[in-house]
Design a protein around this nucleic acid. Structure first.
Lengths: 145, 145
DNA sequence: CCGTTTTTCTTGAATCAGTCAAGTCTTTGA
DNA sequence: TCAAAGACTTGACTGATTCAAGAAAAACGG
């Protein structure tokens, strides 16, 4: 778990003001990869005491714009955030419980894939989400045969 | 645009009852690929007269479960639906205006990609979303140099 | 170290896609 | 044509996210 001392330079390097709330939110995202907004708000409050949800939403937006965190939002799921931003890795999402796991990208740099026909779009990122069942959710289905 | 006569067999083949609402919704999804829920509701009402939003939500859910339409939901976007389901194609989303375009999948069948390390997940689909700027949204940025 | 400026946080209300529940109507199959 | 099963309508509700205005805190020049 990153300490406040480790988080501060990240904020300053991104040209952002350093506040208790920002340090706490960024630390919490590091601690809880793929956590949804509600979980993050709870975790921040556990650390700082009362903090408005609005502050957390604002901070997440700012951190996302600054490239310090990445927002992911699989269908039918709340927004989730992760602090792993340097590489262009991907995700596996469980259709059963919604758990998210990281998958390394073979290429590493975005966009790791390029479309065959881009319709004139300027593509800068290829986001890949693998859908399936995690080991826990897949187990019961084995009883079907 | 598919006629009611062309839509009906699709519903019956999927083992679904045929109702005016279902025919209209499925036709509208064919007509407006990648349209969001609000647009679909408006289009259905333009065709049938007053229809509850609830009916449209229900029908879309049923059609999705039956595999007649596919739901896509890029981050920061409302749910969108498309009727192209046979192939495992992908999408390009414009960061500027949210426009969605289809991209053919080189492989065709799901999952077209398999993760290097699946953490024990049973993967059945790889969803790829390319992010970038459509020609219209990219144009203004050219004035920057 | 202090005041000013700028940005951020708090408070409280509002929005809006999507969901729930109960009752009525339509489709299907006999 | 009739009964049973499934769909649709109505109306209220939920819950994540956003808006707006004022209070507080950080940055910066003096």
């Amino acid at each position: 778990m990153p300490t406040a001392a480790a988080i501060e330079p990240l904020l300053r390097a991104a040209g952002l003001r350093v506040t208790r709330q920002r340090v706490a939110v960024l630390a919490v995202v590091h601690e809880h990869p793929h956590a949804d907004t509600g979980t993050l708000i709870d975790a921040v409050r556990a650390e700082l005491g009362p903090v408005s949800h609005q502050a957390v939403y604002d901070v997440l937006q700012v951190l996302t714009d600054a490239g310090l965190v990445r927002r992911i939002q699989p269908s039918r799921s709340l927004a989730r955030y992760e602090a792993r931003v340097a590489d262009n890795h991907h995700h596996i999402v469980c259709r059963g419980c919604g758990t998210v796991a990281d998958v390394d990208c073979a290429v590493g740099a975005a966009p790791c894939l390029t479309p065959a026909e881009a319709h004139g779009f300027e593509v800068d990122e290829a986001e890949v989400i693998y859908w399936g069942l995690c080991p826990a959710c897949a187990a019961p289905t084995r009883a079907n045969h």
